[in-house]
Design a protein around this nucleic acid. Sequence first.
DNA 1: TTAATAAAGGACATATTTATCCGTTATTAA
DNA 2: TTAATAACGGATAAATATGTCCTTTATTAA
Lengths: 145, 145
Amino acid sequence: MFSKACEYGIRASIFIAIKSRSDIRVSLKDIARETDSPVSFTAKILQRLVKNNIIDSLKGPNGGFEIKKSKAGKIRLSHIVNAIDGDSIYKKCGLGFRNCNNKKPCPLHYKFTVVRENLRKMLEETTLLELSEDIERGQSFLKIN
Amino acid sequence: MFSKACEYGIRASIFIAIKSRSDIRVSLKDIARETDSPVSFTAKILQRLVKNNIIDSLKGPNGGFEIKKSKAGKIRLSHIVNAIDGDSIYKKCGLGFRNCNNKKPCPLHYKFTVVRENLRKMLEETTLLELSEDIERGQSFLKIN
DNA sequence: TTAATAAAGGACATATTTATCCGTTATTAA
DNA sequence: TTAATAACGGATAAATATGTCCTTTATTAA
Ligand code: FES
Ligand code: FES
């Protein structure tokens, strides 16, 4: 579904959002450890998220990554997915044809677009804030096993 | 969403199903041409579909691939996807964690499983027969642009 | 001003997916 | 029985995704 990069990116963003709620800036190492992600690979992904203005970063001692409190409620999963995997997940034909549209639909088109739209809506409706809150309430977990 | 192999596999299966409705056995070359797929790669995928008893093959002159008429209505997209991509699409955690279950859900779990189930149902409900019929009625197309 | 810290970024390494090539095997028709 | 045909299957190649390493740059605190 999502690329590994995207998976790590979402995990990292959620972790940063949680910590930022208590004004704690987190380092690359912390993020990688707490989200079970490879350190160096995560570094690249975080750079991309910074460039896309999803997370903020600060160099030097006491530096690290953060998400301004006021921002977490506005960041949607779709923003992260878009920054890392692009918009192919919303637009690509299920059978891999170049164009996907109602004009010349592939055999899967109508059934597939329903599923795709379902996914799109879910990603567009879900904010980092709400995911962080779930975790803080113990209803979900950022590290499994 | 699906691997390229799976995309080609679905395309090929639909094409074979259509031709088999008029008792025409099709060759690898025909399939590749009519579904815009790479010949040699498609060969491998067809082998896998044969082994999984989804399509039938016959060597030698007048040989080729076919799907017994009585079978097309019973073959579901899920069978093809399962044969090529396995069941990861139905089971894998959206954030890439090893186990996905309600016991220890990741932050995306509940929202993601809805989408995933949606996809699973679609694939399990859709038969090759109905996709072939859509094409024959001119409602969808197996070759685009 | 200096030393320590932490992200940024480029080059490189590995794994997986996608794709090709070619000899072998089975089948058919002449 | 022979020649032609078409799938089968193994080896290999190319492309992409995943992951590492190391040097540079910015920031901070002493
Ligand atoms: S054309 Fe294939 S999903 Fe739309
Ligand atoms: S645990 Fe992540 S989707 Fe179920």
